[in-house]
Amino acid sequence: MIIFDSVTKNYPGGYVALDGINLEIAPGEMVVLSGHSGAGKSTLLKLIPAFERPSSGIVQINGQNVSSLSRRAIPYVRRNIGVVLQETRLLFDRSISDNILLPLVINGHPPGEAGRRVSAALERVGLAGREKEFPAGLSGGEQQRVAIARAFVNRPSILIADEPTAHLDPAYASEIAGLFGSFNEAGVTVLVATHDISLFRYWSPRQIILDHGRILTEQ
């Protein structure tokens, strides 16, 4: 369960990114956040893995208040949350498999098991057999698929994605949306911030539209 309780986020200079957000997301739910640029979608997502802290209010993940966690405790929360960003943030000097392996190494998985998980993740995103290739040789869509594989290889219970289909052509964007849908079907809580809700309509997600840091409508 993800709970936002009266969450406000102010940035220096007086800019209010989120203004008193109250939101509950049940385990296994799929939520699509939309709204114009600067509506607060990205900020809301960033509060979940504690990339940022709220100015006031509480963010709870499975009963744990992540807004007041110590700096040392935050990494352990992040290991249970898969994150996909608009920029893939892949390491271009490492092979595809090494990129996907990184969260498993961080989480302390033994090499044998980690190798099996990497192969399974690559197969899931349709890149089986391309382990040794480097990200620079992949298309934008393929790079995003590697980023998604890296996000779920740790089998997180929550997957958040910030504009994962931006800059992709419609065919690739549909594929990526399909991947998120399939994860949700497997029981993962999925939160996606997007400008294009239609891509996810097939999975009938809960749609939340943000405007100036507030929840405008919810369906």
């Binding site: 352990y76 290991r79 943030r89 961080i106």
Partner: peptide, 16 residues
């Protein structure tokens, strides 16, 4: 820098 930031996003501790 990029590798450090990505590692932090993925839950790496300072020690790691």
């Amino acid at each position: 820098k990029n590798e450090i930031e990505v590692s932090r996003l993925l839950g790496a501790t300072d020690r790691f």
